[in-house]
Amino acid sequence: MIDDSLSILSVSRLSKRYAGGHCALDAVDLDVRKGEIFALLGPNGAGKTTLINIVCGIVTATEGQVSVAGFDISRDFRKARSMIGLVPQELFIEGFETVSATVAFSRGLFGLAPNPSRVEQILRDLSLWDKRNSPMMALSGGMKRRVMIAKALAHEPRILFLDEPTAGVDVDLRRDMWALVRGLRDNGVTIILTTHYIEEAEEMADRIGIINRGCIVLVEDKDRLMKRMGKRQLTIQLHRPLASLPAALSERGLTLTESGDALVYTFDSQRDRSGIADIFRSLADNGIDFGDLTTTESSLEEIFVSLVRAP
C-alpha cells in the first residue's frame, strides 16, 4: 500500500451533493504520491472536475477531508493552496489583458514577489515570449491554452492539476505539453491530469485512477493494470484457407476466422506464453502452413471501457 510519507494529496471520504440533489462524488478515497504523474480517467460527468475543484477550493465539499502535503485544505488553506497550480478545462480569459500581465497577476495572487526572469523563462518554455504583449483575445485557442498553463506555473506549484489539458489542442502543442509535463515531473512536481485521450494517459501516467458515477473504481500502477487487465491476441495468417478447425487446435483455444484464412489466439498478457510453442507444434503436426503472424495488445481504452461498463 501507499507509504503515507510519500502521499502528497490525500482525499478521504469526500462527498459532494449539489443543490439540485445530484451526487457528484460519493465518499471518495484517494492518495496521490509525491512526484508521480497520476491520470484520472472517467466518462463525462463522472466527477473528475468536481474532485479537482474541491481540492483547489473552487467547490465546497459536502463531507470529507482533503489534505495537501499534510495541510488541510480548509484549516491551512494558505499553505495547501500555495502548493497547487490549476489549469482548468475551460479557457477562462480576460480578453483585454496582456499575456505577461495575466501571468504576473497569477504569481502575485499566490503571494510570490514579482520575478520577471522567472516569468520570462515560463513564457519562453511555452513559446509565448513573442506574444507577451498581446492582449489575450488576439491569441489562438492553442495559445490561450498555453497561457492557462503559464498562469498555473507562474507561482511554482508542487502539484499541478491539468483538467483535460489537451482537449482541442493540435498535435504539436500536445507534444510540447507532454514534454513540459515530463520536465516538471523530473523537477519533482506531482502531476494530476484528467484526459479524454486515453492513449495519453497510457503514454504519460505512472498510475491510473478510474472514476465513474462519483466513485473511484480502481487505482493502480499503469503497467500493472495493463498487464492484469490487458489481453494479447495472436493472429496467424494461413497460406490456404481451412474449411474447419482441427480438434487439436480448438482444444488449445484457437478460433478460425469466418473467411477461414486466419487463426486467432487470445490470451492474458501476464500468462506464461509457453502455450504458443505448443500451438506451433500442433500447426506443424496438422500440416498447416502459415504466412504471417501478428500480435496485438489491448489498449488502456479497452480496459477503461470494460471497467466503466461493468455493472
Binding site: C56, G57, I58, F77, R78, K79, A80, R81, S82, I84, L86, P88, E90, F92, I93, E94, S106, L109, F110, G111, K151
Partner: peptide, 18 residues
C-alpha cells in the same frame, strides 16, 4: 461581476488569499 461572468474568478477562489 466580470470575473464571475468570464469564469476567471476560479483563480481568485483557488489562490491563497483570504
Amino acid at each position: 461581476y466580470m470575473p464571475r461572468y468570464l469564469g476567471t474568478i476560479y483563480e481568485v477562489l483557488s489562490a491563497p488569499v483570504s
